[in-house]
């Protein structure tokens, strides 16, 4: 049985092209993203994987001289059409960045930030939301006694989990992670990986990674990008054991990249 037909697509990318000025960064990408799965995006540096993940919440629009064409369907709606409400899109499609980037505020204020701007104002409700988000990010026990101290005093791994808590505090549908562990030590990395596997119950996760073991451990599906093209995408087991394309095979075997 093919998983592909059984599950709902949350994103459906068709014929997507992205240019930075005259540089053709993504070429005719066709990729479905399934609900409640972890999709890993792998590929060597400069292959377009970060560009791709940034198109999913339209963060790419903040890059100068960027152009896009094709279809980027999120829940049946083409995000490349005019008049997409970025505020509500990003409430539904959250993003965690390469390096933990907490605001210079208290731990509590960092997590309460998203819910607050999306209209939550009752203290009780905020406190519950913050606690739940921190628990979901496996951070609650480490910070519960110092919620009102600066988030910048946390370790790198804690900061990254705080950023995940901050993102899931707004209850998004999708969580985009752009190399979330590349700046972390192995222990913090394994915590984030475990977290990603837990979170897919409630969220759809798209994770860019340059670490193939990570993709193999964490993801359900893997897409391999090379020089702006999507070479192959399939269930992770298949990509890592019997890929269709020799370039994929060479990359996952560590022969280049």
């Amino acid at each position: 049985m093919s998983v592909a037909t059984a599950q709902a697509q949350i994103f459906s990318v068709r014929n997507l092209n992205v240019w930075y000025g005259s540089q053709h960064a993504l070429k005719d990408i066709e990729l479905p993203i399934y609900k409640n799965e972890v999709t890993a995006i792998i590929g060597p540096s400069g292959c377009g994987k970060s560009t791709f993940i940034k198109t999913l919440n339209l963060m790419i629009q903040h890059v100068k001289r960027v152009r896009m064409s094709g279809e980027l369907l999120y829940q049946e709606r083409n995000l490349l059409d005019q008049g997409v409400d970025l505020v509500s899109l990003r409430k539904q499609v959250g993003m965690v960045f390469q390096k933990g980037n907490p605001f210079g505020k208290s731990i509590f204020e960092n997590v309460a930030y998203g819910p607050r701007i999306h209209g939550m104002s009752k203290k009780k409700e905020l406190e519950e939301t913050v606690e739940r988000a921190l628990r979901d990010a496996f951070l609650w026990d480490e910070v519960k006694d110092r919620l009102h101290t600066s988030a910048l005093g946390l370790s790198g791994g804690q900061q990254q989990r705080l950023c995940i808590a901050r993102t899931i505090a707004t209850r998004p549908e999708v969580l985009l992670m752009d190399e979330p562990t590349s700046a972390l030590d192995p222990i913090s990395t394994s915590k984030i990986e475990e977290l990603a596997m837990q979170l897919k119950k409630d969220y759809t996760i798209v994770m860019v990674t340059h670490n193939m073991q990570q993709a193999a451990r964490v993801s359900d599906r893997t897409a391999f990008f090379l020089m702006g093209e999507l070479i192959e995408h399939d269930e992770t087991g298949k990509i890592f054991s019997t890929p269709n394309d020799t370039r994929t095979e060479n990359y996952v075997m560590g022969r280049f990249g």
Binding site: N57, H62, S88, K91, F103, G104, I117, C163
Partner: peptide
């Protein structure tokens, strides 16, 4: 830059991110 990206990615409007993230920083 990361601070601004973080606020935009949380769905803040430009003005809101200036007001609550950039100005305090």
């Amino acid at each position: 830059r990361e601070q601004k990206e973080a606020s935009l990615a949380l769905g803040l409007t430009h003005w809101h991110s200036i007001k609550t993230v950039l100005l305090p920083a």
